[in-house]
Simulated scan of single mutants.
Amino acid sequence: MTYEGVLTKMQTEFQAPIQYYLVFENSFLNLNQLLDKSLEINFVGYQCLNCGKKKKIFRQGFCYDCFMSSAAAGDWIMKPELSTAHLDIEDRDLEYEKRVQLQPHIVYLALSSEVKVGVTRKTQVPTRWIDQGAVQAIPIVEVPNRYLAGITEVALKDHFADKTNWQKMLKNEVPDMDLIAERSKLKSFLPNEVQEYFHPEKEDLYELKFPVLQYPKKVNSLNLDKTANFTGKLTGIKGQYLLFEDGTVFNVRTYEGYVVKLSV
């Protein structure tokens, strides 16, 4: 079977284990069914996820022009504390920014390589944690906008990492931590504006199980710009990565906007 289309991040279903899908314009593929089977990936070209033009991808699936102009690629995406829609101040497109920023957001602790703090829209729970390869996650606060989530994350960065060590995550080198206990210690670290949203007594610990037959001992990232054709046996899926028997890992999210042909 052959599938061809523009890569976007894998769609998921929160089951045990997580179910993964690659969705193309006219077809989709349940990747869990390919475990322990050979998969060939061929790089065909580029297609910007924003303008649709066949232009080289710069970041986040966008060509350079779209990345520099689209409201969906503003600095507040990666740095929520820069959000200004609650002040009625526009960055690139105030209508879009209000739609995204002025909705409930979750600040959370996740356990993927170590305990990290992060921010996500409430509608992205638990998808955000699946995408990070977290084996456990727990909300800290639910706040009404992205700015409040951002300043909370900044305050907690002094006490927790804010990035995942992707190599440790893929090798399943995860420490034994009690996220409920970690959350209970946080109240004094929170900004005054979010103290009222802290409810540490909630029983809301998420456990995530990934479809992995074997974890790699060493990892080697597949770079489609350098290696246009790759074939390997799929042995696992974690976060947004495909794991292969020889230690090769492929970050689907990194190659959004790339046109590929997959042969199963």
Rank of each mutant, 00 (worst) to 15 (best):
L222M: 03
F210P: 02
E182A: 14
L222V: 07
G236P: 07
L222N: 03
K226D: 03
P200H: 10
E245I: 07
K185D: 09
L243M: 13
E201W: 11
H199V: 15
V219E: 01
S221C: 04
Y215R: 08
L224S: 10
L234P: 07
G239H: 02
T254K: 14
K217M: 04
P211F: 03
N251L: 09
F230W: 04
A228Y: 00
P200K: 09
F244S: 05
S221H: 13
L213P: 13
F198N: 10
L243S: 04
E193P: 03
I180S: 12
G257T: 14
F210W: 04
E256H: 12
K226T: 10
K218I: 09
L213D: 13
G239R: 03
L234A: 05
Q240G: 02
S221K: 14
D225C: 09
F189Y: 12
Q214H: 14
K185F: 00
P191T: 11
K202Q: 14
S221E: 12
L243F: 00
V249N: 09
Y241P: 02
Q214D: 13
R253C: 06
E201T: 14
L190A: 12
S221P: 07
G247L: 06
L234T: 12
F189M: 12
K238I: 07
Q240R: 04
Y215V: 14
